[in-house]
Write a protein that binds this DNA or RNA. Structure first.
Lengths: 277, 277
DNA sequence: TCAGACCATGTGGTCAGACCACACATTACG
DNA sequence: CGTAATGTGTGGTCTGACCACATGGTCTGA
């Protein structure tokens, strides 16, 4: 066992651990909510050191596949949770930081996904869902036409954004609510992949969006416009007009980043925040 | 320093390392091609153990931000490389394995991105780029209208797919070339984010695509159709017709997965050995 | 002089052992 | 009967020690 270093050549120990867990996931031996064996047990079973097990678990944790907790009893240990948002955010944010992604590419991609979501939502409640006008939403892969999307979760967020007086959100809070609104649309559309990607894209450029606030001629004017546009998006979706919905979303996002004067990265202070559970 | 265990509360050591490296990336102190300090040095500088440094590096490695190499001299050590494809693939694949992502959501998302890419390519070479017919490609965020996309890299792959005789690709090779073709389109479009996401989405369901081959009535018939469709996609793009390009791509992808009989996971019921309580 | 062998050095990869803080379960005690 | 003390197992971390590897300088012999 000790002399196992004779053949570590191609596969590194932590990769074996990763592969083993992935296989357990694919075979169904492990699923959401399940506990992984303890690090020490896993190490003994796979014949590797605990360090290697930990490196694999760390990867899975960052990727949003599990959470770890100290202590004993239920709720402790490493538990499978499939929460792709966190992992997607980390990945995109770090790639932007390392210049693997351009910020405008991120924005452009977000635009594509959001317009597609809006178009799909607008089309999904109609009788003639999937009209030729909307190529994007016309996928025979999508689930059976939902009767009509319930936009209540989204509109509730809009209500919060329009609060006045003491409850009036600060720019930071406003943008957070804005992110929530857009995410809720993706969630209502029912595509977890898109929702996760949108969250990741949005989070990765959160600092840029915030840094752009001072560049605005008037936060009041802009925020009022954003509020109106949000309502317009909802109206377009409820009106069953995919093209209008897409266009409204497109303008909404495009205008803000144009006004905020993009290209100025928010150096040093990274926004990030604790990986909320 | 030793008694640093008094306040590890909120931030775990490896996260500090991660944050430190991220800050270096954002500040420009680290960039693509740069070497990170050695693990031992980094550990000493940050006042953490080497294990913690390694856990952070492992995360960055999986996310596609750096590669590590043993030995000494240039080329060894941890080097910053911003290659998001690998990380995106791992993330999506594992999320699918952990049931965080549904396979049909992955396919639907891929559809959205690929149709958007095709539409953008078709529109980018025209004088009236951004016509109202193509909402998706109409983003004022996209880079200045490229003169006309050079599809040579894509068509070369198609040539390889159409090789006959000894060079004729096997189904596995064919699908690999197919993935390359689609990736090359995204690459030509110039959006790294989309390219990475497409690669990740495609890779994560590679096994499903392969598992579907036996379900086809005739591989020859299907592969011939795919070849024709690839040429049609290129033709539509060169023809400057965004709608046709999107539709062609949409049909291309949709049809294959329909023929391949989706919904059936690649794994048949495995023994399901819960070697842990 | 030069080419080859040789070894010192530094790197990541891995392991083993040892603590700590924590959370729960059990037990002992008032 | 309830509360406090204790036991147990978990992840989190650090330390020290090897290994395999790649480089670069040094030494040796032709």
């Amino acid at each position: 066992m000790i002399g196992e270093t004779l053949s570590p050549a191609s596969t590194r120990a932590w990769q074996e651990v990763l592969t083993h867990i992935e296989n357990d996931l694919l075979s169904g031996a492990l699923g959401p909510g399940d506990h992984l064996p303890s690090e020490r047990t896993l190490a003994a079973e796979l014949g590797v050191g605990r360090s290697s097990v930990r490196e694999a678990l760390r990867v899975l944790e960052v990727l949003g596949l599990l959470r770890t907790q100290t202590g004993s009893g239920p709720g402790s240990g490493a538990i499978i949770i499939a929460r792709p948002s966190g992992g997607m955010s980390s990945l995109i944010r770090l790639q932007v930081a390392a210049q693997g992604f351009r910020v405008d590419d991120v924005v452009a991609t977000r635009l594509i996904l959001e317009t597609a979501v809006a178009a799909q939502l607008a089309a999904s409640g109609r009788d003639d869902a999937g009209a030729s006008a909307s190529v994007i939403a016309d996928t025979s892969v999508e689930r059976a036409a939902t009767p009509r999307p319930d936009l209540a979760p989204a509109t509730e967020i809009l209500d919060a954004m329009e609060a006045t007086g003491a409850a009036e959100p600060t720019p930071g809070e406003f943008l957070a609510l804005d992110a929530q609104f857009h995410y809720s649309l993706a969630e209502i559309a029912g595509n977890e992949v898109i929702a996760a990607m949108m969250t990741g894209l949005r989070n990765s450029i959160e600092s840029y969006a915030l840094a752009g606030v001072p560049h605005l001629t008037s936060w009041r004017t802009t925020s009022d416009r954003l509020r109106r546009e949000h309502r317009a998006i909802v109206a377009a979706i409820e009106g069953g007009d995919p093209v209008a919905a897409s266009q409204t979303v497109n303008d909404h996002i495009t205008q803000y980043y144009a006004e905020a004067g993009f290209g100025t990265p928010a150096t040093s202070t990274l926004p990030k925040g604790p990986h909320h559970g």
